[in-house]
């Protein structure tokens, strides 16, 4: 379960060009939900996603992840959360273009304590790629793939350590309608399997596919 209380996030805090991106934001997302966070450009959606994903910090408020106070954790613990508890998918896929599909998917495993040997890592990556129907591209360089294929690889990488939460920031932003539908069906399938899916989007059609819509405007939850 994700619970955030009274989060304040200001960019350039203390400087003359300070900008308050989130103002007293509180929300709770239960396990297994599929939630869309919508809002106009600059509303604070990505800022909220970065905080939920332990990529960014905030100056006041509380963030509880499965009962644990994330705001008090050091960077090492936060890195562990990013590695194994939360999977992140971005609009531009965030893949290493010069690596192959399997090399990209294996990346989080190098920072995990569980699996040591390369063969085991590869086996796990292949398993996830099969689920994403990307096994046939396993040795292909990522820069040779289409947008939809790249996003599947990104999702595979995000899910490699079986995180309970998947955060997706505009996951269909760079895709056409058909590919967007394919990606959304993957999210739905993951959600059915128990993963909490949080999608940041400005697209209402995408948002309607989620069980709950949270609207954010000018840094506040509406």
């Amino acid at each position: 379960m994700i619970e955030i209380k009274n989060i304040q996030k200001t960019y350039n805090y203390g400087k003359s060009n300070a900008f308050q991106a989130l103002n007293d934001v509180s929300l709770t997302i239960n396990d297994g939900e599929m939630v869309a966070i919508i809002g106009k450009s600059g509303a604070g959606k990505s800022t909220l996603m970065h905080i939920l994903g332990c990529i960014d910090e905030f100056e006041s408020g509380k963030y509880y992840l499965n009962g644990e106070d994330v705001s008090s954790l050091n960077e090492k613990k936060r890195a562990q959360i990013r590695n194994s508890k939360i999977g992140i998918v971005l609009q531009d896929f965030a893949l290493v273009e010069s690596y192959s599909v399997i090399e990209n998917v294996m990346l989080p495993l190098y920072f995990s304590k569980g699996i040591k040997g390369k063969k085991e890592k590869m086996a796990k990556a292949i398993d996830v790629l099969k689920q994403m129907e990307m096994y046939e591209f396993v040795d292909k360089k990522v820069n040779k793939l289409s947008g939809g294929q790249k996003q599947r690889v990104a999702i595979a990488r995000a899910m490699i350590n079986n995180p309970k939460i998947l955060l997706a920031d505009e996951p269909t932003g760079a895709l056409d309608v058909k590919m967007s539908a394919e990606i959304m069906s993957i999210f739905e399938k993951l959600n059915e399997q128990g993963t909490t899916v949080i999608i940041i989007t400005h697209d209402m059609e995408i948002a309607k596919k989620c069980s709950r819509i949270i609207e954010i405007s000018d840094g506040r939850i509406i």
């Binding site: 960077e75 990013r82 194994s84 971005l90 965030a94 893949l95 990346l107 989080p108 920072f111 995990s112």
Partner: peptide, 13 residues
């Protein structure tokens, strides 16, 4: 960019 991707995957910066 590479470091940013690794960071998202759980690398300490």
């Amino acid at each position: 960019r590479f470091y940013g991707i690794m960071y998202m995957c759980g690398m300490h910066y």
